[in-house]
């Protein structure tokens, strides 16, 4: 194989990762400066395209969701009437309707307080504590730093009680995760530095991603939705906040201006870049997965 054929192959290769190439290509690229440079240039080009600053259309999305809510369109996956549900004959349908009407009449005219007990049962069902804690973390992240302490004071005790109550039913993995979520929520109330917040949030997002990886078919959809929701409502807004933070300006005499945190410009930049990379990796992970539930698609 000569350089020309290798380069033609590389230009239409699906992946620029050597692991995905035939061994002969990898060996050639390793020993050939020109082909190695082509690979480097291609990687750089594609990174630049991926990293470019593009709007995400958040406003248009909000408008669309509002419109959709106003239209009140049926947004559930439609269930078509199945053949076995169709009445075999018209008289059978009429009989069923009559039976239903009689039963309904009898039920409505029975003595007693009415349908109270059933409603109570539904209302007192134990909520999924992990869902609640995750939702709580989202609320904490999206609340203004000044409002978080109040939110924490209003909710922490109740949530801890719920965790304690649900503990016997939780798996060890869920129990650890619940503890982590409480810890993160509490720490968010103390922080008003987006970089620190992001570290905490990133940890939760990574745990959520791990939970997706580990999940079996039954848990998969639910866990993926957790991950998506967290990425959309927590990680992405934080990513935006971080990217908008300006590095501290240092004036003569070493005084920092317009920046409340104890970092020099270099430390700040390094921290910001590290975080951005990790959050970006998480974002790509969520893109890569798509809705991979049994209903929405399969793992690629």
């Amino acid at each position: 194989m000569n350089c020309q054929s290798i380069q033609t192959w590389l230009l239409q290769a699906e992946s620029l990762r050597p692991k995905a190439w035939p061994a002969a290509i990898g060996k050639h690229v390793d020993g050939c400066a020109a082909c190695a440079k082509l690979v480097r240039d291609l990687r750089e080009l594609e990174d630049q395209w991926r990293e470019q600053s593009l709007p995400s259309g958040a406003e248009a999305k909000s408008r669309f969701l509002q419109k959709q809510a106003k239209l009140d369109v049926p947004t559930s996956i439609p269930m078509r009437m199945r053949p076995y549900l169709k009445p075999a004959t018209p008289w059978l349908a009429a009989a069923a309707m009559s039976l239903f009407a009689i039963t309904l009449f009898a039920w409505l005219s029975r003595p007693g307080p009415g349908p109270g007990p059933d409603i109570k049962v539904a209302a007192t069902q134990t909520p999924d504590v992990v869902d609640r804690l995750l939702e709580w973390n989202l609320e904490m992240t999206n609340a203004k730093p000044g409002d978080r302490k109040k939110l924490l004071a209003d909710t922490e005790d109740e949530l801890r009680k719920e965790v304690k109550k649900a503990e016997p039913k939780l798996t060890p993995e869920d129990r650890l995760f619940a503890e982590k979520l409480i810890e993160t929520g509490v720490s968010l109330a103390e922080l008003d530095n987006p970089l620190e917040e992001s570290e905490r949030v990133k940890n939760v997002a990574e745990t959520l991603a791990e939970r997706v990886e580990k999940s079996d078919a039954k848990e998969s959809t639910h866990r993926q939705l957790h991950f998506y929701k967290f990425m959309q409502r927590c990680v992405h807004p934080l990513e935006e906040r971080i990217s908008k933070m300006k590095p501290p300006e240092v004036k003569k005499g070493g005084k920092k201006v317009g920046f409340p945190f104890k970092m020099n410009p270099k430390q700040f930049q390094e921290r910001q870049n590290d975080l951005r990379k990790s959050l970006d990796a998480l974002r790509k992970k969520s893109w890569g997965k798509g809705f991979n539930s049994p209903h929405f698609g399969k793992r690629r």
């Binding site: 559930s76 909520p127 869902d131 078919a217 998969s220 959809t221 209903h295």
Partner: peptide, 14 residues
Amino acid sequence: FAGANSAEPPDSFG
């Protein structure tokens, strides 16, 4: 999301 603990599909287009 809250309260759902089965592997149901998300039925919301949102």
